[in-house]
Simulated scan of single mutants.
Amino acid sequence: MTSRFTAPARLALAALLCLPLAVARAAGPADTAAAQTERFIASLHPASGTVAVPGAHAHLALKPGYGFLNAHDAQRVLGELWNNPPDKDVLGMILPSDDPHVLLDDNSWAVVVTYVSEGYVSDADAAGIDYDKMLRDMQESAHDENAERRKQGFPEVELAGWAEPPHYDTASHKLYWARDLIFSQNGDSGHSLNYDIRVLGRQGYLSLNAVAPIDQLAKVKADMPDVLAMTDFDAGQRYVDFDKSTDKLAAYGIGALVAGGIAAKAGLFAKLGLMLLALKKFLILGLAAVAGLFKKLFRRKQA
Rank of each mutant, 00 (worst) to 15 (best):
M1P: 05
L13E: 11
C18S: 15
L21P: 00
V23S: 04
A24I: 00
T32E: 04
I41K: 04
P46S: 13
G49T: 08
T50D: 03
G55H: 01
H57K: 09
P64M: 07
P64I: 14
G67M: 11
N70G: 15
L78N: 05
D87L: 06
L91G: 09
M93W: 04
P96H: 09
V112C: 08
G119H: 00
Y120H: 15
A127T: 10
A127Y: 05
D130Y: 12
K133E: 12
K133R: 15
L135G: 06
D144T: 07
A147V: 04
K151P: 00
K151F: 04
G153E: 01
V157E: 05
V157I: 15
E158H: 11
W162C: 01
A163P: 00
E164T: 10
T170N: 05
A171V: 13
G190E: 12
G190V: 05
H191Y: 13
L193H: 05
R198P: 01
V199T: 11
L200S: 08
G201V: 11
G204H: 12
Y205A: 07
D215C: 04
L217N: 14
D223F: 10
P225D: 01
M230R: 05
M230N: 05
R238P: 01
A256G: 11
V258C: 05
G267N: 10
L272K: 03
L283S: 14
L285E: 06
V290G: 14
V290D: 10
G292I: 00
G292A: 11
L293A: 04
L297E: 08
